[in-house]
């Protein structure tokens, strides 16, 4: 059974159909990439999977538990973490406190001693390379640093499934290399990853499987090489440059 499963997910905003009956399944310990042109419904799908939106139709299961109607904080406690394409830290709190929130309030692997929580926070900041920025306010960080903070925040709840929304976009080529290494390290740790990236190249290097979303429907699903060669995908991306 898949770790995360969504069936018949539809989402309508007024008259606009953002998703039309999407089926997805993410197997444990895999990296699954989600591709699609702007406006194809990728972020909407993530918002449903993390509980920010309730789908107009369809159901989502995680570990076999139906979670469609659960609020975000319960979904987080089931073990799903996410990042945002445009980072959304607690702007007036320190980088350290931004990560400490998730470490403090997670239901599993909870540390009862404040000392341990601080140590765990420092460890996470070390992983994303923000250790020396711990005392800075989140709104003082550069975009690249904010993206790393996003990742540290998503990891702070000890999720088993990570939803990563365009971690590599907007970064320099060097930053992108780094993100690719992150993906590999996270996978090594046994995390399951569902990732939106705008760039084929990033996903082709890290993903075990690719899904392609176009106008609210899945138009391709398979191994990266297979998917990137399919005519439907080329068509969906016609006129779209790989500038992500």
């Amino acid at each position: 059974m898949a770790l995360l499963e969504g069936r018949g997910l539809s989402m309508a905003f007024g008259g606009l159909l953002a998703l039309r009956g999407v089926d997805i399944a993410v197997e444990e310990h895999q990296v699954v990439g989600l591709l699609g042109p702007n406006g194809s419904g990728k972020t909407t799908l993530f918002n449903i999977l993390s509980g920010l939106l309730r789908p107009t139709a369809g159901q989502v299961w995680f570990h076999g538990t139906r979670m469609t109607d659960l609020p975000p904080w319960k979904i987080s406690r089931l073990g799903i973490g996410r990042t945002f394409q445009i980072p959304r830290p607690f702007a007036h709190s320190t980088v350290f406190d931004n990560v400490l929130v998730g470490v403090t309030f997670r239901p599993r692997h909870r540390y009862h001693c404040p000392q341990d929580r601080r140590r765990e926070t420092e460890r996470l900041l070390g992983i994303v390379g923000l250790a020396e920025k711990a005392a800075a306010n989140a709104n003082e960080l550069s975009l690249g640093e904010r993206k790393r903070l996003e990742l540290a925040m998503a990891l702070s709840t000890r999720p088993t499934l990570l939803l990563l929304d365009e971690l590599a976009s907007g970064l320099s080529p060097k930053g992108r290399e780094e993100v690719i290494r992150f993906y590999a390290r996270l996978k090594e740790r046994g995390l399951t990853i569902f990732a939106i990236e705008h760039s084929f190249r990033v996903l082709a290097q890290v993903a075990d499987r690719l899904l392609v979303l176009d106008q609210g429907t899945i138009v391709a699903d398979g191994r990266p090489a297979q998917v990137l060669g399919s005519p439907r995908v080329v068509e969906a991306y016609l006129g779209e440059d790989d500038h992500g």
Binding site: P72, G81, R88, S93, V101, R106, S156
Partner: peptide, 12 residues
């Protein structure tokens, strides 16, 4: 700071 973000980190 960010009620929605807090809830995504398990804070009700």
């Amino acid at each position: 700071e960010e009620e929605e973000r807090a809830s995504l980190l398990g804070v009700h």
